[in-house]
């Protein structure tokens, strides 16, 4: 099967410091891939490079047969790359429903309509209602996002990314900062979405149990390079990975 996302010798630097060095990575259509690695190893930067938040210093990124590394973020989004961020990244002054209306309107190409009220498009409302129900946020539709609980914000964040109906979903630590009892809900949600829609998912995750339960393949980043890649079993058995993690470099956070 052909790779849907391919990174070729991708390098990213911040003020001379390399955050990614010549990363090669191919991800297949429909795969659920977990990206792990110690703090500062470049995981977030890798997602940023794919979704267009940072520029490459060198290398190429191809998606669905097109070279995308020179495209602005909004065009990559329109090609079907959806993104949720490590920190909650929503529209705090808008209501939950409005937060969902934005991606839905973007998907339906309604963003330049200037006359009818935003809440007056039946196809948008239907999609928003479905999302609210699917993510258990029905009661919160009119609430300003700023006043949601943290777990709800995280759920909404994923919902906003999914509302675009991406073909490739990039999730950056979706369980970060969550209470332990909420974690299975998110993990279940990710698996459910992946199985139902068959989209490609790349998820950064620190909780190894979640990674093992979810991922079909794991890529380990270390110091801006790919240290290892393979099935969960082979990664757990990998010498270099054990060294990096058991060598005390791995600090469980949160």
């Amino acid at each position: 099967m052909a790779a849907t996302l391919e990174l070729m010798e991708v390098s990213v630097t911040f003020g001379g410091v390399a955050a990614l060095s010549r990363v090669d990575l191919a991800i297949e259509e429909g795969e659920l891939l977990a990206l792990i690695g110690p703090n500062g190893s470049g995981k977030t930067t890798l997602l940023n490079a794919v979704s267009g938040q940072v520029r490459l210093a060198a290398g190429q990124i191809w998606y669905a047969g097109r070279r995308i590394d020179h495209l602005p973020a909004y065009q990559r989004s329109r090609l079907g790359i959806g993104r949720a961020f490590q920190q909650v990244n929503l529209f705090p002054g808008l209501s939950v429903a409005e937060n969902l209306r934005l991606p839905v309107a973007a998907r339906l190409g309604l963003g330049w309509r200037v006359w009818r009220e935003a809440g007056g498009y039946p196809e948008v409302n239907r999609a928003v209602d479905d999302l609210l129900r699917e993510f258990g946020l029905q009661d919160k539709a009119g609430v300003a996002v700023g006043s949601l609980a943290h777990g709800e914000k995280r759920v909404l964040d994923v919902a906003v990314a999914l509302a675009l109906r991406p073909r490739l979903l990039l999730l950056d630590e979706p369980t970060a900062g969550m209470a332990v009892e909420e974690v299975p809900r998110i993990a279940e949600l990710i698996r459910h979405v992946h199985e139902k829609t068959g989209i490609t998912v790349v998820v950064i995750e620190h909780r190894i149990d979640v990674v093992k339960a979810l991922a079909e393949r794991i890529v380990v980043l270390y110091d801006g390079r790919v240290l290892a890649a393979g099935t969960p079993a082979s990664i757990m058995a990998d010498k270099k990975v054990q060294e990096v993690y058991l060598g005390g470099l791995y600090a469980q956070r949160d």
Binding site: S51, Q53, Y74, P92, L102, R107, L110, R116
Partner: peptide, 28 residues
Amino acid sequence: RFVRSPAGLVWRGMRENESRIESLGYNV
């Protein structure tokens, strides 16, 4: 009508969080 329309919602979204608006596919 402008501010209550979908475009108005995008403008308000831009005010709240410009980079997320961009990543939702809007040309900021």
